[in-house]
Simulated scan of single mutants.
Amino acid sequence: MYKKSEITQTKHEFWTAFGAYMKPVPSAEGYRVNWQNYKTGVKQLFFRMKAERDFTSIGIELNHQDLDIQELQYEQLLLFKKLLHTTIGEEWVWEFAQPDSYGRPISKAEKVLAGTNVMNREDWPAIISFLKPRIIALDEFWSNVKYGFEDLK
């Protein structure tokens, strides 16, 4: 069992290492980007990367409090589903308005890698190898479709 402070410290060290590893990688448009805290420019639309004790995941998360707006964003994203899967090179799991750990509805498209543990530093290369190409592909995808979300900002 890990102490909460140990988990927090290890995750901080992982994300710092990931950020340093990704720092030289420019965005699809050639700009510097904070990969760990990617800004989509659309309210309540996020690219989420998680490195936990039993899985790693990456995805697009919609968590607008107004469920009608969240549904519009989700439907808009669904229009680009084929382009997303083509850009990333794999199928993702899509969910609409599923409750999060606080009971709030969130919609998402994500890919999960089971069996990794951020607390095990030997897993870090596998976690980074999973996240890096997908966040780069998400950025490329977003550079092509973000204008379709301008009315939903």
Rank of each mutant, 00 (worst) to 15 (best):
D139P: 08
Q98P: 00
I60R: 03
P99G: 12
F14H: 01
L62R: 06
E122S: 07
S129E: 11
H64S: 09
E52R: 05
W142R: 03
Y21G: 01
E6S: 14
K39I: 05
Y38D: 00
T8V: 04
G115C: 08
L131D: 07
W124M: 03
T86I: 05
S27K: 06
E90P: 02
Q9W: 09
E91L: 13
D54E: 15
D66I: 11
K81M: 11
R48S: 05
T40S: 07
Y147F: 13
A114E: 15
Y31F: 13
E91Q: 15
E91F: 03
N144R: 09
Q65E: 15
D151C: 09
N144M: 10
V93N: 10
W142P: 07
E71A: 13
G41R: 03
E90W: 04
P105G: 02
T8Y: 13
I69H: 06
K11V: 00
F149D: 08
Q98M: 15
W124T: 02
D139G: 01
G19T: 12
P99R: 13
E6W: 05
G59M: 06
A20L: 12
N144A: 15
S57N: 07
Q76E: 14
D139E: 02
V33D: 07
Y21T: 13
I58D: 09
E75I: 01
D68K: 12
W94C: 07
Y21I: 08
K81G: 12
D123T: 04
P26F: 12
F80E: 09
A126T: 04
E71V: 02
E122K: 09
R48E: 11
K4C: 03
R48Y: 07
L79Y: 13
F47E: 07
K39T: 12
I128E: 01
Q70T: 00
D68Y: 11
P24K: 04
N117C: 09
Y38A: 09
T10Q: 02
L45Q: 09
F18G: 03
R32N: 11
L152G: 02
Y2L: 15
V145N: 00
A17Y: 00
G30M: 10
A17M: 08
R48D: 15
P105T: 11
K82A: 08
K50F: 05
L138C: 08
R53H: 10
R32H: 09
V42N: 01
S57M: 10
R121D: 12
L131I: 12
V33T: 11
N144W: 12
G19W: 00
Q76W: 14
F96H: 13
K4E: 14
K146H: 10
K50W: 00
A51E: 01
S5R: 11
T87E: 06
P125Y: 03
W35I: 03
N37V: 10
F18E: 05
L78P: 02
L79N: 08
E52M: 04
D54P: 02
Y31Q: 15
S107G: 08
N63H: 10
D123I: 05
Y31E: 15
E75D: 11
L152A: 00
E140F: 15
A137K: 04
K50N: 09
